Simulated assay, not measured.
Amino acid sequence: MQPLIVIPARYASTRYPGKPLVELTGATGAKKSLIQRSWDAAKQVAGNPRVVVATDDDRIRDAAEAFGAEVVMTSPSCRNGTERCAEAHTVLGGSYEVIVNLQGDAPLTPHWFVEALIDELSNDPAAGMATPVLRCDGRALNGFLEDRQEGRVGGTTAVFDAVHHALYFSKEVIPFTSRTYADDEATPVFHHVGVYAYRAHALKDYLGWFEGPLETLEGLEQLRFMENGAPVRCVEVNARDRQFWELNNPQDVAKIEAMMAEMGLE
């Protein structure tokens, strides 16, 4: 079963216009755009997936095709990455069983995060969609808290039940904890990694639902599943000593570049 990996990318980001074309400098001094680094991450996934960039912007299309990416043009009316993935899947013929949404602002996403989601759907026919969660250490949690204290919207956190069905996702830090944690200490907070794997029927259902109040307030597309009673499977993944961060704000560029340098990523 060959999966389809879609990297949705739009130029007109509210918080960071032109974000997919921002250059990130790796450990060796090489400069690559955010969208190219996301493409490179997707191409490391096992199972020979088909990888496409889905965009509505000619500048992103031109930049992606210049480094060899396959590009699918989608409508400017897509409100989020899930809708853009659904449209791209339709444009490509709609024949894939598993479609992965690897959002274009997460260039540090390890390939095994994506592979864990594909395995989850392959092993459980009842699961319609899955997304990874990563237990925060003190360093990551402190980064979240610092963002909120400075008025920035950083990463997303998740809480889930005993069978790993999501209870809620938020751009606030949940659950609340009053403790202070050392940088290398495990915390009760889980970072939601912005990657999704869907079955085709789940994507089709998504397009038939209206945007609910929680999705609107949080700006989190996955809440539409929960607001319509569709379970979201949280798959706990292991960073294997890799650092992980998403590019949400201009301030994140230096943070991600420092992580790449520390990990020796080109």
Rank of each mutant, 00 (worst) to 15 (best):
I5T: 06
Y11C: 11
A12L: 13
K19M: 15
V22R: 14
T25Q: 11
A42D: 06
V45C: 06
A54N: 01
D56A: 12
D58S: 13
R59W: 09
I60Y: 05
A63I: 03
E65Y: 03
E65G: 01
T82A: 10
T82I: 15
L92N: 04
N101K: 10
Q103G: 07
W112I: 08
L117V: 07
L117W: 06
L117R: 04
E120D: 12
N123A: 11
A127G: 02
M129A: 09
M129K: 07
V133K: 02
V133P: 03
A140P: 00
E146Y: 14
E146A: 12
F160V: 00
D161C: 03
V163Y: 05
H164Y: 15
H165G: 00
A166P: 03
S170Q: 08
P175N: 05
D184T: 13
P188A: 07
Y196P: 01
L203T: 01
L203M: 09
G208Y: 07
T216L: 15
E218G: 07
G219C: 11
E221L: 06
L223A: 01
R224Q: 10
F225V: 06
F225G: 00
E246F: 02
N248Q: 13
N249Y: 06
P250Y: 08
I256K: 04
M263W: 00
L265F: 14
